[in-house]
Computed example of a mutant assay.
Amino acid sequence: MIFAFFFILGAIWGSFSNVCIFRLPQDKGVVLDRSFCPQCKCIIKWYDNIPLISFLYLKRKCRNCDCKIDFQYFFVELLSALTFCVVYFVYGLSVTTLLFIILSIFFIIIFFIDLKHFIIPDELSFPLMFIGLLKSFYPNLDQELFPNLINSLIGGILGYVIIWVIIFLYKKIKNKEGMGLGDAKLLSAIGFWFGWVSVPLIIFFSSVIALLYVAPTLINKTKSLTTEIPFGPYLIIGTVVYIIFGNQIKLILFNI
């Protein structure tokens, strides 16, 4: 029964995430404005806006104009629902579960916005930084997952500085922009959440994953080395890898 609760809660937050993904890049409000079809502009009734169910019932079409609904809406709701369940399964009813649920909502929104628009809105990065720092004042968190205040502060500063230095050097050498400050702010937020030790590991994981994804397109020449790619999604995937395997990797490194 509790899994059903987290699944439904996750689907609801996934629906809200879809609103943010669609509206934030357009500087539109995400709370008061009602959902509408992007094609016919008709307001979507509540019974056509039930997470997951309405998508399946309407067969991926708008009731009013038969415009196809982007599969991303269903995928985000399902991903959010499953993420909530997995977090609860691993960490139970705890503050850690609450924190990871909050983090997952931010990560899902940032992932899809950056993937599509190549931007990471400050409206997401700054609250994520603040929450990452604020949680360090809670005394009973697992120190292996979440660092103390000093570690968190260093992590936030280090995350920003590393990306800023990469941007600065690339611009000096190539005389053009390589990465955006949105990536620096995101890595800073991640540093606030998981401390300075996490930053180099997450950069490594993210870079390897990005390289593995981009390499085939470079080989078949559908993309070149100058093709712009969003790095935010890779930072998020790298962070997930760190959360899952970080402790084991740190044990290996510190025992060498």
Results as ranks from 00 to 15, higher is better:
N151K: 15
I120M: 11
F74P: 09
F205C: 13
F194N: 12
I162A: 04
C65P: 12
L24K: 00
L52D: 04
D33Y: 09
N247G: 00
L211S: 15
I209H: 02
D142C: 00
L93K: 13
Q72L: 11
S125F: 01
E123W: 05
I256F: 14
K59I: 12
A189R: 04
T83W: 06
L82P: 04
G191A: 03
P233A: 01
Y73I: 05
T96M: 13
Y170R: 04
W13Y: 05
G10P: 05
L201H: 08
F7I: 10
T226W: 02
V214G: 09
L56T: 11
P121L: 03
L103F: 15
P216Q: 11
I44N: 06
D114T: 04
L251S: 07
R60T: 13
S136D: 11
L153W: 03
K221C: 02
D33F: 11
F106S: 04
F137C: 03
F118N: 14
N49S: 10
L145H: 03
L218M: 02
E123F: 06
L169F: 14
N18E: 01
G29M: 00
L133H: 07
Q143R: 14
V240E: 03
K171N: 15
S35K: 00
G10E: 06
R60S: 12
G156Y: 00
E123M: 08
I131L: 09
Q143H: 10
G182V: 08
A210M: 14
L211A: 15
P139C: 05
L24P: 02
R34F: 08
W46Q: 12
F254T: 15
Q143L: 13
F22V: 06
P216V: 13
A184R: 00
G10S: 08
G155A: 14
I166F: 15
G132L: 05
L251Y: 04
G182A: 13
R34V: 08
I167M: 01
R34W: 07
I119V: 13
L235D: 05
S224W: 01
F75Q: 07
I166C: 15
